[in-house]
Each structure stands twice: as C-alpha cells, then as structure tokens.
Computed example of a mutant assay.
Amino acid sequence: MKKFAPVLVVVGILILGFLYFMNVKNKALLFSQVTEKEWGNVNTAYQRRLDLIDNLVNTVKGAADFEKSTLTAVVEARAKATSVTIDPKNITPAQLDQFNQAQSGITSSLSKLLVSVEAYPQLRATENFKQLQDELASTENQILTARTRFNESVLAYNGYVLAMPQNIFLGSYTEKAYFKAVAGAENAPKVKF
C-alpha cells in the first residue's frame, strides 16, 4: 500500500485540479450567458421602442398636416438604429459607441417630434396619441432598466474572468464593454416652444 501512496496523492491532486478547472470554466460560462441574456433584454426594450415609433409616426401623420422633415428624421433615425447589430459574445466599446450613436439619433428625433406636436392641440387631445406617449415613456424606463442590468451582469462577468487565478484558465474569455452615456447626455435637453 505504501508503494501506491505517492501515485494516489498525485492522482488525487490531478482530480482536484481538474474539478477546480471545470468549476472555473462553468462559472465563467454562466456569467457569460447572463450577460448575453441581459443584452437580449436591452435589444428587446429597444425593439419595443422602434415598434412604438412606427405607431407614433402613423398617428401623427393621420391626425395633422405635419412637418414632413420631422417625420422623415424620425423614420431615418429608426432605420439607422435597426442597421446596427452587436454580437453579445464579443461586445467592444467601439460597437457600443456605434449602437449608442444610432439610438441617440432616435432619441433626438423623437424629442423634436414631441416638441413640434405641441403646436397641434387636436393631436395632443387624441386618446391614441396620449397612449403612445405613455407607452414611449414606459419604454424609455424599460431601456434604462435593461441597460442597468446589462452593466451589472458585465460587472459580475468581468470581475470573475479578470480576477486571479481564474484569468489563468480563462484566456478565451475576454473583458466585455459597459454601456456608457452618449456624449453630451449629462446636459439637460433644451425644449423650446
């Protein structure tokens, strides 16, 4: 039995090492999956906003002889936003910046649309328009929540895969980018009637 003791110790150490390695990989995979799920939630919230924009534009078109340039800007911003896609497995700061720029174009266009609607009291009074405005406000809150949860999942993921000793075993898991505010977002928008 003494003859096999060193072999058993080495085999035991190798088994424990393999189990630790599997645990590290599985936990990193879980964090990665949570991050991808949260990115899906961000996309779902933005998609809801895009769907509402079509309804809003059609409601405004039907209710008023509206400024075509404003409606065109909203439609073009929506088209641009739908053209930017990101692979959640390889999110980079540059991709997120591009995505943010496209989404900020929608926000800007919507703001102009809603401000110019103020000149049309009969439109503001319609039930459909009020409901769409409420849904847009709700959607903006959902986007904020989804982005916050995404950033929290990225924090957990990055904290795990970049920490020692996990980073030794997780070379294929790279740091993911956080959502950041669009440049100028710290300034309050100026609304003029």
Rank of each mutant, 00 (worst) to 15 (best):
P6L: 03
E36T: 08
F21R: 04
T35A: 06
F4C: 03
A28I: 08
L8I: 14
L29S: 15
K37R: 02
K2C: 02
K37L: 00
F18I: 08
I13G: 10
L16Q: 01
G17M: 11
K2H: 09
L8H: 08
K3Q: 12
G17A: 10
G12R: 14
K25E: 06
K2N: 09
G17Y: 09
N26L: 06
L29D: 14
V11Y: 00
S32L: 05
V34S: 07
N23C: 12
A28N: 07
W39A: 00
S32W: 03
V10L: 07
K3M: 09
I13C: 12
V9T: 12
V7W: 10
V24D: 02
V9S: 05
V11D: 01
K3F: 13
L19P: 08
I15Q: 01
M22C: 12
I15R: 03
K25Y: 13
G17N: 08
L16W: 06
F31V: 07
E38Y: 06
V7L: 11
A28D: 07
F21L: 10
K27Y: 15
F21Q: 07
E38C: 04
L30V: 14
E36I: 06
F21T: 05
S32R: 08
G17I: 05
L16P: 00
L8W: 13
K37S: 04
L16S: 04
V34A: 08
G12P: 09
A5K: 11
V10A: 05
V34Y: 08
M22I: 09
L19V: 15
V9D: 04
F4A: 09
L29H: 11
V10Q: 02
I13Q: 12
M22K: 14
V34T: 14
K3S: 08
F4K: 12
F31C: 09
V9H: 11
F21N: 10
F4Y: 15
A5P: 02
V9Y: 07
K27A: 13
V24P: 00
V34C: 06
W39N: 01
A28R: 03
V34H: 05
F18H: 03
F21Y: 11
G17P: 03
P6C: 02
V10N: 02
V10F: 06
L14W: 02
I15D: 00
A28L: 07
T35K: 02
L29T: 15
L19M: 15
N23V: 11
F4R: 13
L8K: 10
L30N: 13
K25G: 02
I13L: 15
F4P: 01
I13F: 14
N23F: 12
V9I: 14
L8S: 11
K25C: 03
G17E: 07
V9C: 07
V9M: 13
F21C: 05
I15A: 05
V7T: 09
V34N: 10
V9L: 13
E38L: 03
F31Y: 13
L14M: 07
K27P: 09
M1V: 05
